[in-house]
Simulated assay, not measured.
Amino acid sequence: MKGGISNVWFDRVRISNDCPEHLESIDAMCQVLTELIDDEVNSGIKKNRILIASW
């Protein structure tokens, strides 16, 4: 990753099992995903038809 910005489900300050999760970036990612889902629902898409994936 070499310091590149990324959103992952378990964001950490460094790659190590003993490193705590970086909660601020996880909270920000959750807010973005919530807004995205809300926009889709408000446009008429049912929640059970929404899929979130990463690549």
Rank of each mutant, 00 (worst) to 15 (best):
V41K: 12
I45K: 13
I37P: 00
P20A: 07
H22T: 06
I50G: 02
K47E: 12
L33P: 00
G44P: 08
L36M: 13
C19E: 15
W9S: 02
S54A: 08
S54F: 05
V13P: 00
T34S: 10
I26E: 14
A53M: 14
D27R: 12
S6P: 00
I15L: 06
L33V: 13
M29L: 15
S43C: 03
E40G: 00
W55C: 01
P20E: 08
V8P: 04
C30N: 14
K46W: 09
E35Y: 12
A53T: 10
R12N: 03
V8S: 04
C30S: 14
N7T: 04
I52F: 11
M1I: 06
R49H: 03
I5G: 05
V32M: 04
N42M: 04
I52G: 09
D38W: 09
L51R: 11
A53V: 13
C19S: 09
G4Y: 10
N48L: 05
E40W: 01
V41N: 08
M29N: 10
I26P: 06
E40Q: 04
I15M: 04
S16V: 02
L36Q: 15
L36N: 13
L33W: 08
N17I: 00
S6H: 06
K2G: 13
E21N: 06
I26S: 12
N42K: 11
D11T: 08
V8Y: 00
R49Y: 00
S43N: 07
S25N: 09
D27C: 09
W55Y: 05
L23I: 15
S16K: 05
D27L: 12
W55S: 03
I50T: 02
K2M: 14
N48W: 12
E24A: 12
Q31P: 02
I15T: 10
S16Q: 04
V32W: 01
C30M: 07
A53C: 12
N42P: 00
L23P: 05
C30V: 08
C30I: 06
I15E: 13
E35S: 15
I45G: 05
N7Q: 01
F10H: 09
I15D: 12
L23R: 09
I37T: 06
S6L: 03
H22S: 08
S25I: 15
I37R: 02
E40Y: 00
I50L: 07
G3C: 05
A28Y: 04
N42Q: 11
H22A: 09
F10K: 11
W9C: 03
D18K: 08
V32F: 06
V8K: 09
G3F: 04
S25L: 15
V32C: 02
I15Q: 09
I45V: 15
L23A: 08
W9T: 05
L36D: 14
M1K: 10
W9R: 01
W9V: 02
L33H: 10
M29W: 08
K47Q: 04
E24S: 10
D38Y: 13
V8F: 00
